[in-house]
Design a protein around this nucleic acid. Structure first.
Lengths: 159, 159
DNA sequence: AGAAAAAACAGCAGAATATGCTGGTTATAT
DNA sequence: ATATAACCAGCATATTCTGCTGTTTTTTCT
């Protein structure tokens, strides 16, 4: 019989560590320990455990999109004309290859996929849209260009 | 007379540094230097400069949403019934307060705002939707629940 | 409730890293 | 061609990481 991996629930300190790290992943361990009222060693132990248990997927830097020529964002709704796993799979595959597609979700409620694309200009948007509509099975699409960012994704509200 | 701040374009090494950091912000400076074929000091200088010039907005940890009770994602399209700056402002203000709203963009092309919400259950979704429709000026909304994540946002494709 | 076991904790020491400084090189502009 | 400025590598010191030890607290089982 398979013993389930011992998965202790997270306590208040674990959540404080996760929140501190998602707000600033380059904080030194000693400062992190101070922030969560722990000494350095147990704090480091907990961070290692949270990493090992998969609560932390990765540490990343958030870059300034506008300064790096990705100032425009658009959402594209895509409808496929056939619902076969073959069409789904080839669509998913092509989506990985088009680097301007930042995110792609399969959704329920009216169309099939919602794409978030990041581009530098409408000319580049036009080029990307051309690539998307050429994917086999794509029947319809509709684009919504972002005019203003109202709320930025700053991580999970775990506190 | 105001001298424009000397803004040198980014070279290949700068881009390599930014890409390495967005993929792993906790890399040590000496390893980062190795990766971009530099010695430690100039590498650190460049990182500091990229931070100061705003290319790096912040360093964060990406947490596992499913393990932290945010396993469901939904997109909500919202249409307002009046286009006054007063309605816009109060909407933006309320959006900041509702913590399940991870992202909010004002868009052109059919409706006014696209919300990305993260919740743990349909019951919580129902509660959040109630809060959204109670914001003054909200006329219509439509929800698309995410069935499958096809492509995750892994940062800007700067290489 | 009490004893045994397990987990968590703080402090310490050696290894690794960050960081400011110096001198030398390369690129840029006049 | 020369002067100027930016960039680079290496070094020294201060800080931080990280594994280890003994102690305390919490949990579990009787």
């Amino acid at each position: 019989m398979l013993k389930p991996t011992k998965t202790r629930p997270l306590d208040r300190i674990d959540l404080a560590i996760l929140d501190a790290l998602q707000k600033n992943s380059r904080i030194s361990n000693v400062n992190l320990a101070k922030e969560v009222n722990l000494s350095a060693s147990p704090c480091l132990d907990r961070v290692k455990r949270l990493e090992a248990e998969g609560y932390i997927e990765r540490y990343g830097a958030v870059l300034n999109a506008a300064k790096l020529k990705f100032g425009l964002t658009a959402y594209v709704e895509v409808t496929l004309d056939k619902s076969t796993s073959e069409v789904f799979d080839s669509f998913a595959e092509r989506v990985q290859e088009i680097k301007q597609i930042a995110e792609c979700d399969m959704v329920a409620g009216g169309f099939d996929y919602l794409l978030k694309i990041r581009i530098s200009s409408m000319a580049e948007y036009r080029a990307v849209l051309g690539e998307v509509v050429d994917i086999p099975g794509v029947a319809k699409n509709h684009t919504y260009v972002v005019i203003e960012k109202i709320k930025n994704d700053e991580g999970l509200p775990i506190v």
